[in-house]
């Protein structure tokens, strides 16, 4: 697929407010620095793609926003990360509450070993006492939003493992939606899926972007070109440490990259 035709599907970026922003962000794992001096604004209700070669810290960067890096012993963050102007690394911040607002979908579909229904209901059940009726409403609307309802409405009680890979990934998206987040982080959500399932997820992302702020990490340039409004290009510097090379509206970044390294990477990728 040619770059230009991929870009025609992409929506022109409409800047709304800024949802998330990092200022001079540094991330360390023990003595190693994984990210250096990253300053970036993530627009609200749009899709931001984080691209770059593998090992450049894309996933680490994504996990900054819901503080999943906290789980890694020795991880340390410097600089500021703000959600709606609130510093999410401030010591008074509740990580659990943060993760309700900033949901995450993983590289490999990771449905829980329970029924389809229980998978979606898992989050709401943890967050408060909900009646069976409310729960049913939440599950149904989440599955609708994840474009999965029609496929699973008759097998809500079946094990989530019986679904196909693409369905499992959409189930994981529904599971996140059920908590009613504001931001959805997606870490290479299609890398384990076939092309048809991938397109379905991209379609879904486009629709979700009307309501949610989405950040997607991808090594697939075509996916970034097709599906994102804004792109940020990360690159390793000195072999270990990720830096932000360039960012901007996806159409501009792909057609008129300002940085030589971006151009090399993109053209290299598209052949």
């Amino acid at each position: 697929m040619k770059l230009d035709s991929a870009l025609t599907n992409s929506r022109p970026p409409q800047y709304r407010g800024t949802k998330l922003s990092t200022r001079h962000l540094n991330l360390f794992y023990g003595p190693c620095q994984a990210l250096r001096d990253i300053t970036l604004d993530i627009p609200e209700r749009a899709i931001t793609a984080i691209i770059g070669p593998s090992g450049c810290g894309k996933s680490s960067f994504l996990r900054i926003f819901n503080r999943m890096n906290d789980l890694i012993p020795g991880a340390r963050v410097e600089g500021s990360v703000e959600l709606d102007g609130i510093d999410i690394y401030h010591r008074s911040i509740d990580v659990v509450e943060l993760r309700k607002r900033v949901g995450m979908v993983f590289q490999k579909p990771n449905p829980f070993p329970m029924s389809v229904f229980e998978n979606v209901a898992f989050g709401p059940r943890r967050h408060g006492r909900v009646s069976r009726g409310e729960l049913q409403d939440i599950v149904e609307s989440s599955l609708h939003q994840a474009a999965l309802w029609e496929e699973v409405k008759d097998k809500l009680d079946q094990s989530a493992f019986d679904l196909s890979g693409g369905q499992q990934q959409r189930l994981c998206i529904a599971r996140v939606l059920a908590v009613e987040p504001e931001v959805i982080l997606m870490d290479e959500p299609c890398s384990a899926l076939d092309p048809v399932a991938t397109l379905k997820i991209e379609d879904l992302m486009r629709r979700l972007a009307e309501k949610y702020t989405i950040i997607i990490v991808t090594h697939n340039m075509q996916q970034a070109a097709r599906a994102s409004d804004v792109s940020a290009f990360l690159l390793m510097e000195g072999d270990i440490c990720g830096v932000l090379v360039e960012h901007g509206p996806t159409a501009e970044l792909f057609t008129k990259p300002k940085d030589r390294r971006t151009e090399d990477y993109i053209t290299g990728r598209f052949g």
Binding site: I93, D94, K100, G128, V130, E134
Partner: peptide, 23 residues
């Protein structure tokens, strides 16, 4: 353990209040 008093409505409410540490 589930929080007794919380419901979805309250959970939504908490969101607007912010992200303060809960004990």
């Amino acid at each position: 353990m589930r929080k007794r008093s919380a419901s979805i409505a309250i959970a939504r409410d908490a969101r607007t209040k912010g992200l303060q540490r809960r004990w």
